[in-house]
C-alpha cells in the first residue's frame, strides 16, 4: 500500500526543475537529518549483523547457570535471560536473523508477486481472470494464518520461516505489480512501441519492467518490517524460529513469562526490533521521496 509520504511536498518544491542526480544526492543527508540518522542506525544494524562475532561480548548461546535472569549490569549491559545467556550478545546476533528473515522472505514474496502480477497484468482473457482470482484468494487469507499453515507443512527453523513468510506475502506484491503493469500498459510509449512492431518480450523488458520494478523496490523496503513482525508473531505463537537461536521474536516470546520481575528480557529485544523498524521506515520513506519517478512527476 503506497502511503503518501509526509515530507514529499516540502522537499520537492514544484517550481524547481529536477536537479541533476549528483547534486541531489550530495545534499540529501543535509536536507534530511532524520533520514541521515536513520540510515546510520540501519547501517549500524547491518554492521552488527555482519560482524556479530567481533562485536558481541559473549557467545549468544552460552548458558551460565550462575547468571540466570540478571538485571542489566556492567558484565551484562542488557542483562541475562533465564538460561544465563547474555542478552546484549543475543540482540546483536539477533540482527542477523531479523535481517535475513526480513530481506529474504520479502525477496521471495516480491519475486513470486512479480511473476504472478506481470502475468496477470500482461495476459488477457480467461488467464488474466484466473490469475486475478488467484491473487484475490491469496489476499483473502490472513497472511499470519497462511504463514502458520506453511510452517505446519514445512516444519520450523529460520529457513522455513523465510519461505513461509515469503509465500504468505506474494498476494500483496502481486496486486501492486499488476496495478502498475495496468498503468504502464495503456501508456502511449508502450502502445507506440507495440505499433512499431518491436517484439513483445522486448517491450516488456525495456518499457514495462523498469516501470514496475521501482514501485516494487519501494514496496520491498516497506514490507521488510512487516516480514520481521510476522516472523516474531510466529515465535509468539510457539512456532517458527527454533530456540536457542538468538531471534528477537523468540526472545520477546520467551521473556513474556517473566515480565513482572525481569521486564528486560522481553523489552530489550523489543526495543532493538522497534528501533530497526523505525530506522528502516524512515530510510524507506526518504529513498522513495527522493527517487520515485511518480512522486517527482507529480511534483
Amino acid at each position: 500500500m503506497s502511503i503518501q509520504t509526509p515530507e514529499a511536498p516540502t522537499t520537492l518544491p514544484p517550481a524547481e526543475p529536477p536537479k541533476k542526480a549528483k547534486t541531489g544526492r550530495r545534499s540529501i543527508f543535509l536536507r534530511r537529518p532524520f533520514f541521515t540518522i536513520a540510515l546510520i542506525v540501519a547501517a549500524a544494524y547491518v554492521l552488527a549483523a555482519i560482524f556479530a562475532p567481533f562485536v558481541a561480548p559473549y557467545d549468544p548461546v552460552m548458558q551460565d547457570i550462575n547468571a540466570m535472569m540478571q538485571a542489566p549490569s556492567v558484565a551484562h549491559p542488557l542483562g541475562t535471560d533465564s538460561y544465563g545467556q547474555d542478552i546484549l550478545s543475543r540482540v546483536i546476533y539477533g540482527a542477523r536473523y531479523a535481517l535475513i528473515i526480513g530481506i529474504f522472505s520479502v525477496l521471495i514474496g516480491a519475486a513470486g508477486g512479480l511473476v504472478i502480477g506481470l502475468a496477470a497484468g500482461l495476459s488477457g482473457g480467461w488467464l488474466e481472470w484466473a490469475l486475478m482470482r488467484l491473487i484475490d484468494s491469496i489476499l483473502a487469507l490472513p497472511s499470519l494464518i497462511l504463514a502458520v499453515a506453511f510452517i505446519a507443512i514445512l516444519g520450523q527453523g529460520v529457513d522455513k520461516v523465510v519461505v513461509a513468510v515469503g509465500l504468505s506475502m506474494i498476494g500483496p506484491f502481486a496486486r501492486t505489480v499488476r496495478a502498475d503493469v495496468m498503468q504502464v500498459r495503456v501508456q502511449l510509449f508502450v502502445e507506440a512501441a507495440t505499433l512499431m512492431s518491436i517484439p513483445y518480450l522486448k517491450v516488456i523488458w525495456r518499457h514495462v519492467l523498469p516501470n514496475v520494478i521501482f514501485p516494487l523496490a519501494v514496496q520491498v523496503t516497506i514490507r521488510i518490517s512487516e516480514a520481521i513482525l510476522v516472523s516474531s508473531s510466529l515465535s509468539f505463537l510457539g512456532i517458527g524460529v527454533t530456540p536457542p537461536t538468538p531471534d528477537w521474536g523468540l526472545m520477546i516470546a520467551e521473556g513474556r513469562a517473566f515480565v513482572s520481575f525481569a521486564a528486560w528480557m522481553s523489552a530489550m529485544p523489543g526495543f532493538a526490533l522497534a528501533l530497526l523498524l523505525i530506522a528502516l521506515s524512515i530510510v524507506g520513506d526518504g529513498i522513495r521521496e527522493e527517487f520515485d519517478p511518480k512522486l517527482r512527476r507529480g511534483a
Partner: peptide, 11 residues
C-alpha cells in the same frame, strides 16, 4: 506514528 508501526503488537 513510527513507534506504533514498529512495536510487535503482542509485546
Amino acid at each position: 506514528a513510527l513507534t506504533g508501526t514498529a512495536f510487535p503488537s503482542f509485546l
